[in-house]
Design a protein around this nucleic acid. Sequence first.
DNA 1: ACGATACGATACCGTCCAGTTTCGTAAGTC
DNA 2: GACTTACGAAACTGGACGGTATCGTATCGT
Lengths: 198, 198
Amino acid sequence: MTPTDRKLGRPRDASVDAAIVQAVLEVLNEVGLGAMSMDAVAARAGVGKATIYRRWSSKEAMVIDAIASLVASVEVPVTDDIRTDLITLLARLRAFMNDARGGSIFPWLVGEVASGTDVGRHYANAVIIPRRALIGEVIRRAMEIGSLRPDLDVQLAVDMITGPAILLKIMQPLRGVDERWEEKLVDALLQGWQAKTG
Amino acid sequence: MTPTDRKLGRPRDASVDAAIVQAVLEVLNEVGLGAMSMDAVAARAGVGKATIYRRWSSKEAMVIDAIASLVASVEVPVTDDIRTDLITLLARLRAFMNDARGGSIFPWLVGEVASGTDVGRHYANAVIIPRRALIGEVIRRAMEIGSLRPDLDVQLAVDMITGPAILLKIMQPLRGVDERWEEKLVDALLQGWQAKTG
DNA sequence: ACGATACGATACCGTCCAGTTTCGTAAGTC
DNA sequence: GACTTACGAAACTGGACGGTATCGTATCGT
């Protein structure tokens, strides 16, 4: 690293990076991956295509980076009541799936994950796995302090919470969403998770 | 209907219809909808493109018909044991999702349903809704004969069974599938569904 | 035999799109 | 001021694809 290292010419405009990523998410949200053109992204970002290709080598690389920016800060709820904790987590998950930024992206993102695409793998690692780990942690802690049966299969329990939520999102175009849905699901689950064995 | 109605020229070859539908499903299974070209379908079916367009007016119409052909006969299990009934239904659902014909189609089909596409709506009406109704029927019957609590929300119960199964399919590329998974889930669910109230 | 339609194959058209290049200009270093 | 890189805009290239048209052949009814 010499002193005069990398200081030639006009420096890159950091705000341009943000504008492009934002544009990718918007267009993705509106038309999906298949119908998203680089011209559309460039136009939305108010940027030349050359500027995009100066940063990413391909459309796919750009999308992967944009998706990775969806990572949300994960924060453990800290109530002493497992019921409200789970309801909070569920509401958060549903809010995330219906997020303005990611709302329409989510459906095809599910397809990407299920198909094992590059984009899908990156999304899974950046978003899904940390969030699942968080929910699992909450459940594990509740098992330790005796709020939940100690013989629960944590992985299965996480599936039992998140599965119906994702299904609800998938079927959204087909039916209305019950209010207080989160409470109903959590109560139904807890009836089994708190019960004495046998 | 005059006697000489519709009897001019060479009749259509019914086996060609089947070959095309089969080819659509295969190519769809291999490359997905976005990457499926009419040339690929025609080549796979051993058919000219004109022959395809003689039957369907567009790619989309063709795909919708092909998807509709996935409809499986739905049959109610008839055990007197709700546990084995549910396990059977679950195993059937998972087998369908991993079907050789529909295995790789399922992921993007989920995206189509969630996005409310034409294809998605047709698939939902042809496959998802009847299957959900079937599962709901089994649960309702078990409630009537006292095998399940009488105060269950049937729609929610169906979500609690099928949600985790679909989630498992989605996350398939990310983790192995536990053997006897169906039994574990059903047992976990029944612990709540059979419990006495409060 | 004749007219009509179906068939597979292939060429063709128009469009869309990822990625490249060019151009005039702006923003930095030396 | 000389040099270098970034920027927006626009033109361009090459390929892929949906859909149509054409051609020679096959299969039906009459």
